[in-house]
Simulated assay, not measured.
Amino acid sequence: AVAARLQAAGLPVGVDRARGLDHGAWVPLLLMYPQADIPVMQLSIQTEQGPAHHLALGRALAPLRDEGVLIIGSGSFTHNLGEFRKRRPEIDDPAPSWVVDFADWVHSAAIEGRIDDLVNYRRLAPHARDNHPTDEHFLPLFAALGAAGENARVERLHNSANYGVLRMDVYAFHAERRADVAA
């Protein structure tokens, strides 16, 4: 059903029934559902396709919400392991300004609904390349945001930093309530 939705949206699809979940999926699921009592399917990100593609992917999957499907975009709000290795920080070290500035910019853009700015974060966000030398750990955010549909309400559920340079922010993207759906 997921592959059919993606194909209908003109997005490339391949199915690998043998691949298991990677740590980006099983770590949050272990914390959220420790009994492992829900069915799970993982979509791989396509780094070369960029944020706009992943936003479109999420939008193609948005109708699944009405079928009771929870769509999780699990990545990393900041992810520069090269800087982490170079600094050798302690877990409770304060975040440097280049991490804080980036996280604050993304938060403001998300809360204010500046989707085009988020899609163009590489060009617009302060210190984007310092926080994400490559896109892959940030792209799940766009799939989750897209799955909430147009005019989604964005809510930050958690924000913190580990080792100063690894932000662990968590957001919920709430679909806009449609007038034709009873409460």
Rank of each mutant, 00 (worst) to 15 (best):
L21H: 13
E48N: 10
P28I: 04
V99I: 14
V170A: 15
V69Y: 02
E90Q: 12
L81E: 04
I72H: 02
L29V: 09
N131Y: 03
A110E: 07
L141T: 10
A144G: 11
V181T: 11
A183M: 11
R85S: 10
P28H: 07
A103G: 11
A56I: 01
R59A: 02
D116F: 04
R167L: 12
G10V: 10
D130Y: 03
A3S: 14
I91C: 03
E155C: 04
A183E: 10
L57S: 00
A18R: 13
A36Y: 09
S44N: 13
I115W: 02
Q35S: 12
N151V: 07
P34A: 05
L166H: 01
R153G: 07
V106H: 02
Y121D: 03
L118Y: 02
A161H: 13
L166R: 00
R5I: 06
P89A: 05
N80D: 08
G82F: 06
R177C: 08
F77P: 00
N80L: 04
N80I: 03
G20W: 08
L141M: 15
L21W: 13
H23E: 06
A175M: 09
P133D: 09
A4V: 13
E176R: 15
L31E: 09
G113T: 03
D130G: 07
G14W: 10
L64C: 06
R129C: 07
W26G: 02
A161S: 13
D66R: 15
R19Q: 15
Q49S: 10
V165F: 00
L61N: 00
A18V: 13
W26V: 04
F142Q: 00
G50C: 06
E67A: 11
A175I: 06
Y121K: 04
P96C: 03
E83Q: 13
L81G: 06
P34C: 05
R59I: 01
S108C: 07
V2M: 11
R65F: 05
V69P: 00
A147I: 02
S160M: 12
A179R: 15
A62I: 02
I115H: 01
E136L: 08
N159H: 14
W98Y: 10
T47E: 14
D180A: 13
H132D: 09
A1M: 13
W26L: 06
R19E: 14
I71W: 01
G149W: 05
A52E: 14
N151E: 15
R122C: 05
D169C: 08
F138T: 01
A179H: 14
R59W: 00
P96F: 00
A109F: 02
G73F: 00
F138I: 14
A103Y: 01
R178A: 15
A182E: 14
M41L: 15
